[in-house]
Design a protein around this nucleic acid. Structure first.
Lengths: 351, 351
DNA sequence: CTGAAAGCGCTTACAG
DNA sequence: CTGAAAGCGCTTACAG
């Protein structure tokens, strides 16, 4: 059973050749006589040879340069603070292998800045890239350049169908909407109404939010018990003023609102509004464990937050990229991470 | 910034000694003249030397033998099927390092068998042990023997205070009870009663179940909205007959029961009972993503399952043990894993 | 087309 | 107390 691992030396002896020749066969380089090759290959198979990673790395001293291109975190989207954590952890886990991570960030409000940064990344000629494809058009152009340069890239936080990406690791947005729908349905009086809030300047441009909305409605229609109205409300700006304007009007017209589903990560803005108006009989369900959200989760203003494991997205991304670069292992095209249901009682374990 | 890593050779040259001497200083072996030692140590610090793991492993060819002692999974506790998965994954992640895992299992119903297996484990002289301390007395004896033999060991699934364990990775049972309490409170009519079920022959011996019960009640008393009765019910045997006997009586006496909290992993037994009796207005909340439980979760008979990440417990356990053995890194004494809230809608991502 | 040698960074005897 | 040499398993020129 636990027989000792064959070394290149053993293979050489069994095949009656030198280790150099064995190496040539293994790596398909140099010309090897056809009989020699066949002989060596058969021994390779017999002995179930696999190279010793340690020795390989020690010898080649290869350094892998990975570049990430993600939004710069700021007060309005501290969500992006989590991503670097996962990457740094991955680099640490891969410590013996000399992987270098170059983190490039861009202004999430600024398409031009993104484009500028993509040029910077390309100039550095990294071995692999981790990308959050926030701006669709510019991202597609960038991806096609990466493909042209033969640089593998992976997506986090969302993916673009028509690109040559290596893998996507993240949320299944439709299913995540269904989870939110189920939770909301469970805690909402069946006779009361449900609001779905989308904060976006251009509601057509926020693909993942719309997926969540669809999943949410899908659950309520097909599997839910709620008999109230379901209203999709767009709020154009993530400001207190804009929110007040829209919600004052909506809640006046729909006084029987029992729950609000916030499709994006800024539930805390809605929670602040509800607290101020003392509307504590309206449930709020939202996304992402931002500090501000967690505060309102603990105060009770938010009932459920759904987590999409941003650290794990980038952590796994780095590792898959490394596996691909070092061992040519092609990962599953898409890996959906668990959709975490977070309440005031279990939130501390997730942060 | 990214200056090249100092090698032992560089240190030797800077200190004006041979690499052998540097090695002696690094590993505190052989006698080194005090001035030589000081000189080398200062260079070590200056250059911020750290050994190349690859070269170290390649040279020493050290093999780490880790033994796990966990319950044998069977139909009644398929929970234990998950643990090997996490360990196998860890071994694969550590592939370049030659870690060997020896999995020993025991009959969870049989204390004698456990004891026999502990002797077997000790005889094999492993470098480290992973233990689920099911039987308290016998486990304590085993741990003290491991300590005597200088074999580090870690706990999963529970821990014993008065032993020299390296680390515990798992659930915070009290907090997990609180999470269950909160979920139950959210979905239960405030006027209806709540049953807490403990399946155990000797209710005093199931420490972790009692912790969960306490957490559950703690939440309902301090933070809940439910006004109904809370009853703790012991069922002595995990059989349909025993369950029917106890529940028929209890539900007759408490017709206003709105929810049942199952403190252990065998919710499916209760779900089967409820389905047969067509008591679909009673909510069921329980533990662990066993196949049978998941089936009832999807059918709606179980509303929430709480997951405690058995794979991750053992996965992290193996890795911590390895880090300790290979780099003498002492992990945090206790790491509580997230308490996952699982419903029919997100369960597929967890299995 | 093939073999022998050097070397990756480290550790382990051995000789002095 | 200290240095020089051999070797872990592999890869990379180099010589033939």
């Amino acid at each position: 059973m636990s027989q000792k691992k064959a070394r290149i030396k053993d293979v050489a002896k069994l095949a009656g050749v030198s280790i150099g020749t064995v190496d040539r066969v293994i790596h398909n380089r140099g010309e090897v006589a056809i009989e020699t090759r066949l002989k060596v290959e058969s021994v390779l198979k017999e002995t179930n040879y696999s190279p010793d990673l340690m020795a390989q790395v020690l010898k080649s001293r290869k350094i892998f340069n990975i570049t990430s291109l993600l939004p710069e975190p700021n007060e309005l989207n501290s969500y992006w603070k989590k991503h670097p954590v996962g990457m740094t952890k991955a680099i640490k886990d891969l410590e013996p292998f000399h992987v270098i991570l170059n983190q490039v960030t861009f202004d999430i409000q600024n398409e031009e800045d993104f484009q500028k940064k993509t040029i910077e990344v390309l100039k550095n000629k990294p071995d692999g890239v981790i990308l959050a494809p926030i701006f669709k058009t510019q991202s597609i152009a960038f991806c096609s350049n990466l493909t042209k340069e033969n640089i593998p890239f992976i997506f986090v936080d969302g993916y673009l169908e028509n690109t040559e990406f290596l893998t996507y690791t993240g949320e299944d947005t439709f299913k995540s909407g269904r989870v939110a729908g189920q939770l909301t349905d469970m805690i909402t009086d069946p006779k009361r109404d449900i609001l779905i809030i989308v904060i976006a300047r251009n509601i057509k441009n926020v693909h993942h939010l719309n997926n969540r909305t669809q999943g949410f409605i899908d659950y309520l229609e097909k599997s839910g018990t709620n008999k109230g109205k379901k209203l999709i409300i767009n709020i154009p700006e993530p400001t207190d003023k804009s929110i007040k304007l829209v919600l004052d009007k909506t809640l006046k017209e729909n006084p029987e609102t029992g729950s609000i589903f916030m499709t994006g990560s800024r539930s805390f803005l809605l929670a602040a509004y509800l607290e101020k108006k003392r509307l504590n009989n309206i449930n709020l369900v939202g996304y992402d464990l931002l500090e501000e959200n967690v505060r309102y989760l603990k105060s009770g203003a938010i009932k459920f937050l759904i987590g999409q494991r941003p650290e794990e997205q980038t952590n796994k991304g780095v590792k898959k990229l490394f596996e691909f670069l070092s061992k040519h292992k092609t990962p599953e095209k898409i890996e959906y991470l668990p959709i975490d249901v977070v309440t005031s009682e279990n939130v501390d374990f997730y942060i």
